[in-house]
Design a protein around this nucleic acid. Sequence first.
DNA 1: TGCATGATGTTCT
DNA 2: GAACATCATGCAC
Length: 205
Amino acid sequence: MRPGRVLPRSFYERAPDVVARELLGCVVEAESPEGVVAVRLVETEAYAGPDDAASHAWRGPTPRTAVMFGPPGRSYVYFSYGMHWALNLVCEPQGRAAAVLLRAGQIVSGVDLARTRRRPGALEHRLAAGPANLAACLGLDGTWSDRPVTSARGALRVRAGERPPTGDVLTAARVGISRAVDVPWRFALADDPRVSSPRPRRPPG
DNA sequence: TGCATGATGTTCT
DNA sequence: GAACATCATGCAC
């Protein structure tokens, strides 16, 4: 796969559902002293600001969520359930909170390193299935939060990928939340085994 | 194949 | 004190 250009800040300066959908097929790269792991995204979710009851930013900025209110094109890495990290990309102009949660992807580079960070015998299509697994493959923790992802020289960056056909993008309700459960802001590539469960279905028609 | 459960820190009520 | 943008395991069917 020919590596695409690093996505510019303007890409993220839009509504989170638009960014989430267009991120499918793009490649996230995390570079550390151990090496580089690259993941082609197959599943994302959009989260908005104070209007979205499922969003961390719903009740306004806190020390944890301040990043979401900052400039777009930066990382928001949060710790959840006492043991997992998850990677988000901040969207919308500065002052408006929104982010895209990266839920699952295909390892396209650094598979061995990713497997070392997960489980020795892990199957490829399970390595980065789920937001915590994805972050683990990339070797992320809280120190990776609030970093730009728009610089080709940065340790964390996102490259343009092959745009999937519109008919291959599934839309569904978000997973693992208890508020605003009907908002269809989960996006995934159809028929990709790495999409975390429950698998979304093709829209009717 | 599918559900109940434990691990465990940060945030909010 | 409870909830939470989770995952792997174990056991029932």
